[in-house]
Design a protein around this nucleic acid. Structure first.
Length: 998
RNA sequence: AGGUCUAUAGCUCAGUUGGUUAGAGCGCUACACUGAUAAUGUAGAGGUCUGCAGUUCGAGUCUGCGUAGACCUACCA
């Protein structure tokens, strides 16, 4: 609860849309009741069972340790232990042995299998035992030969006997095979104190283990299912029984008891501690004390069962409370039998839409394929108690599924006459306290309850349940299902989507899926976005130690929530890890938000001046609006369709990128730039109204589309726009409907036309640049050559636009069959490749070698024949791509099959116009320098100068006056108090005065 | 150790079912525009598509093996 305020704060600041007023609290009584209900369902289906799992255990403290406790600093310590390489005798042989290495000799009496790696190479080596000098043949991994034997002592098999007799202790390889061939090999029990129960499978076999490596030891791993988690797992898979004895109650226990001492059946060491650290000092420091490890080693040495004994230094976990080494030990646990539902879980998982898909198929899918039963037990104090009451012998048990069940159960027990006075008193006390809200379903209260079943006393199993069960039960427990709100539950389950870190694959994703599948035969969520991690800008993990963390509060303060959100979404897919760089947010701020803000300001500036109101009942029909309006509306509706699809497919990054592109490219850089003049007109004519309405619609729609990603800024724009719309009373963008794309308004031809206009403008600009022709200098003509008529018609439609954009007077088309055109041809690889395969390189060469006449022939006849080593290959127009490349005698540029030629010859008139435009530009600058307002009028006096200037002044007087708001322009021989301006071509002396309104 | 992902321009990222000049934005350089102006436009430079091998007429794209990084799970016998 300490962090709830902080959490709520950042939730609000970043615009995270959740119901903060109704959080689900897992320790709430109602929540817990649902958990108990669910557990009871499991219990009734027989899916809840008590078994054991191998867990870290401290015999000194007498308690199990969580992995969290083991991972505390200082727990792993370098210690020296006695390691033994033991010889396991292969059944039916005189002296063949499997070698296995262990650093825990005390587990050797519990050995019941040996594991090898399936693909590891093993060799059988002839040599002798160094302690008994007896000849032996041993199996080891080939990769470890040099670690186990002295390479110098290797001899060829042929001379082995000779060397041996010379007393040289050699070794030689006599067989080699893969691990899988050793599988099933049987061996004699190493230390036969206790025989295993072999009713469900035989012990002392070689099995396969996926964890076997050739890093250490012999490549053959000693397996004792009672003292290793891996061991238990592979043993279970291979039906290898554990070696167990019965305790005084008849329950099976391992060969070591909970105090860390050998049981009496291990006669040689009965009652002795498996590690010297567990014995009191008086014993270990006494004269002649030898640890059990050491004595096991001696025993094995004497019986020709120890191949090598040595001290080994390694890391071993220790108990943080007692400082003594821990044991891996089988502890009682409650499990949910998830393995029974494995198939169904895999099946249902395939119906879930995972983002990214690989996490669902790979990481999660593999996890489900290798599912083990869910260990539900936790030995803690805080948490949800397991609602199971059990008799001492374990013969009777009951699972409580509701508060009502519990209270009735207590009454029943109290009335049964079985309980002691003390137990009845405790039960009553619980009831009273519970009713008075002084006790709840937690420990220690529930531990006081004693129930009765079949005249047997039941006490609560002390375990708590895994907190992940709490989370996985969220869809049901948050509504207190089935006790309350059943309808709400039914409409909200399964969830549309879940978003969590990819690290939750085995956590929340799994527990939700498991409970959903097992109890409701349903997925718990239809879509998943498993988001990646946020890394620092160099791609390293953020950590306090490296000091590369980013404080989210500071980031939000500095940049605001929306740019931060937009950056996170737009920069990379949520499921990819993100290299977090503040520069990226700055860029988003500038690029997207500033552009949008500029666009909005532009609109607002003029709309306010004109007192423009958006009246949706009184719109100019789109079809009646100018072409550029129809174009941007078409683009807008294409965008709506695109964004809607992306959001629906859980691809927010694609949605954000599409919006960014529209705002910066289409709306701001193209539509506004080309249509500015329409807003400058003095009166509110229809064309101007159309422009306002178009821009208004664009801004409103963009705000609506962007609102899921930028909830604050979009709301700001939206509400401001709505001030001008009397008809709309919505108070927030988040209450408005998402826009719907109208396909009637999408005109792909128009969009293609505009694209061509942009392409040709860009090409013409490039040509100007190449020839050092500034845009202000008007030019006479461009020629455009295209191969097909559709493109030509498209260009015709936007011809005026292109001309004004590039400051050129006329546009001329060059007919496709004009002999001025040089054409290019290249093969359509996709089409021809599929058809001719290997012949492609030759065909390609021939196609490229076609002459202009050949191409013309193909275009005219629709077919052209290639001759490939006698084979005739007919080419149609579809088999090739024909483009234009060059126009004789012109400066040209060619791109995507369109060729543009620019006439760079200047006539006197063009030159004069260039000067005039230059002059306008300089006068405008002068006006600005003097601080004149837009509406101020001026009077100009200009001194005659060069011939070019004089001609320009004479021919373009009106134009100059118009552009510079000059009421008068006198051309004089001499101007006093003049300033000298320099244009590209000439110098000008002029004087400018502001016209005073009288 | 196993599983999953990632690697493309200085940076952040696109790149459809393999098809022949590998794209965008930022940054950089130059130019233009100058009534959206702490804006804007255009162009240029910049790539052995992580390495090696394979499949194929053809590989950034498919396969295998490496390298580097990220995450998860497990273990250290």
């Amino acid at each position: 609860m300490r962090y709830k305020e902080l959490w709520d704060d950042i939730t609000k600041k970043m615009g995270y849309w959740v119901d903060l007023g109704k959080p689900y609290i897992t320790f709430d009584k109602n929540y817990m009741e649902t958990l108990w209900y669910l557990l009871k369902q499991f219990h009734e289906k027989g899916l809840l069972y008590k078994g054991y799992s191998i867990q870290p255990y401290s015999p000194a403290a007498g308690t199990g340790l969580s992995s969290h406790e083991i991972n505390q600093p200082g727990c792993y310590r370098e210690v020296k232990d006695l390691s033994i390489t033991a010889q396991f005798k292969v059944k039916g042989t005189s002296n063949d042995y499997l070698l296995a290495w262990t650093t825990t000799p005390w587990t050797l009496p519990s050995n019941s299998a040996l594991a090898v790696g399936k693909n590891i190479d093993y060799v059988k080596v002839e040599t002798h035992n160094q302690y008994t000098k007896q000849p032996v043949n041993v199996y080891v991994a080939k990769a470890l030969l040099n670690k186990i034997f002295d390479p110098k002592k290797y001899v060829d098999h042929a001379i082995f006997d000779e060397e041996k007799h010379a007393g040289k202790h050699p070794y030689t390889i006599i067989e080699q095979c893969k691990g899988e061939h050793l599988e099933g090999l049987e061996y004699e029990q190493l230390l036969p104190y206790v025989k295993p129960d072999e009713t469900n499978g035989t012990a002392f076999r070689v099995i396969l283990g996926d964890f076997v490596s050739t890093e250490d030891g012999t490549g053959i791993v000693h397996i004792s299912p009672t003292f290793g988690a891996d061991d238990a797992r592979v043993a279970k898979l291979a039906n290898i029984p554990a070696i167990l004895v019965s305790d005084e109650n008849g329950n099976p226990i391992p060969l070591v008891d909970k105090r860390g001492r050998f049981v009496k059946e291990v006669t040689d060491f009965a009652g002795e501690a498996v590690k010297a650290e567990y014995e009191p000092k008086e014993i270990t420091e006494a004269e002649g004390y030898e640890s059990t490890d050491l004595r096991i080693a001696v025993k094995l040495k004497k019986s020709n069962r120890a191949f090598k004994v040595e001290k080994y230094e390694h890391n071993y976990p220790h108990c943080w409370r007692t400082d003594k080494p821990i044991l891996y030990y089988p502890l009682d646990s409650w499990f949910i039998k998830t393995t029974d539902y494995k198939e169904r879980m895999v099946e249902l998982n395939k119906t879930i839409n995972w983002k990214p898909a690989s996490t669902g198929e790979g990481r999660f899918g593999n996890w489900l394929e290798n599912l083990v039963d869910w260990n539900l037990s936790r030995s803690r104090y805080w948490g949800t108690p397991l609602p199971i009451w059990r008799s001492e012998e374990g013969t009777e048990e009951t699972c409580i599924g509701s508060i009502k069940d519990l209270l009735e159960g207590i009454q029943e027990a109290n009335n049964s006459g079985i309980l002691s006075v003390e137990e009845v008193k405790k039960n009553r006390s619980f009831l009273e306290n519970f009713m008075a809200n002084k006790a709840d379903l937690h420990r220690p209260y529930v531990d006081d309850i004693t129930l009765v079943k079949n005249k047997t006393k039941l006490t609560r199993e002390l375990d708590l349940i895994d907190v992940w069960f709490d989370s996985g039960a969220m869809p049901y427990a948050q509504w207190h299902y089935p006790f309350e709100q059943e309808e709400t539950f039914k409409t909200s389950f399964p969830a549309d989507f879940i978003a969590e870190g990819v690290d939750q694959t085995r956590g929340w994703f799994f527990t939700l899926h498991a409970i959903g599948t097992m109890l409701f035969d349903s997925v718990a969520y239809k879509n998943v976005i498993s988001n990646g991690l946020v890394l620092d800008k160099n791609g390293s993990k953020m950590s306090k130690r490296l000091g590369n963390t980013v404080n989210p509060f500071e980031t939000l303060d500095k940049f605001g929530a929306d740019p931060t959100r937009w950056y996170l979404i737009e920069n990379s897919n949520p499921w990819d890890s993100l290299k977090f760089n503040e520069d990226g947010i700055t860029e988003v701020q500038r690029k997207f938000f500033n552009t949008l803000q500029n666009t909005y300001s532009f609109f607002a500036l003029y709309a306010n001046l004109d007192d423009f109101d958006f009246d949706k009942n009184n719109l100019i029909p789109i079809s009646k609006r100018p072409e550029s309006d129809r174009w941007v509306i078409s683009k807008l509706h294409s965008l709506i369709a695109e964004v809607d699809t992306h959001f629906a497919e859980y691809e927010p990054t694609k949605a954000a990128r599409a919006m960014s592109k529209f705002v910066t490219n289409d709306l701001s850089n193209w539509y506004i730039r080309l249509n500015r003049k329409r807003f400058w007109k003095a009166e509110l004519v229809e064309d101007k109204i159309a422009a306002y309405q178009t821009l208004y619609t664009c801004l409103e729609t963009i705000a609506l589309l962007a609102s899921p990603i930028a909830p604050f800024y979009s709301d700001f724009i939206y509400r401001n726009l709505k001030k001008a719309d009397e008809n709309d009373t919505k108070t927030s963008i988040h209450l408005a409907d998402f826009p719907i794309s109208d396909s009637e308004l999408i005109n792909k031809d128009l969009e293609a036309q505009m694209e061509l206009a942009q392409q040709i403008s860009s090409m013409t600009h490039a040509l100007r640049k190449k020839n050092q022709m500034r845009v202000r200098q008007p030019l006479q003509k461009i020629m455009v050559a295209v191969v097909d008529e559709t493109t030509q018609n498209h260009i015709k439609a936007v011809q005026e636009l292109i001309l004004s954009e590039v400051n050129v007077k006329e546009l001329e088309f060059l007919a496709p069959d004009s002999d001025k055109l040089t054409k290019t041809i290249k093969p359509n690889f996709k089409k021809l490749g599929g058809q001719y395969g290997k012949a492609m390189p030759k065909i390609a060469a021939q196609v490229r070698a076609m002459t202009q006449a050949d191409i013309a022939a193909l275009e005219q006849n629709g077919i052209f024949t290639l001759n490939l080593d006698g084979e005739v290959i007919p080419l149609t127009k579809d088999d090739v791509e024909i483009g234009t490349e060059d126009i004789e005698g012109w400066v040209v540029m060619s791109e995507n099959g369109i060729t543009v030629a620019l006439d760079v010859n200047l006539t006197d008139e063009l030159r004069q116009e260039g000067v005039a435009r230059d002059l306008v530009n300089r006068i405008q600058n002068l006006r600005k320098d003097k601080g004149l307002e837009v509406q101020d009028k001026i009077l100009l006096q200009i001194e005659k100068g060069s011939e070019l200037l004089n001609a320009a002044l004479a021919n373009f007087k009106d134009y100059i006056c118009d552009e510079t708001q000059a009421l008068e322009m006198d051309i004089l021989d001499k101007v006093t108090n003049s300033v000298e301006l320099e244009t590209e071509e000439t110098k000008v002396n002029l004087a400018m005065r502001v016209h005073q309104l009288s």
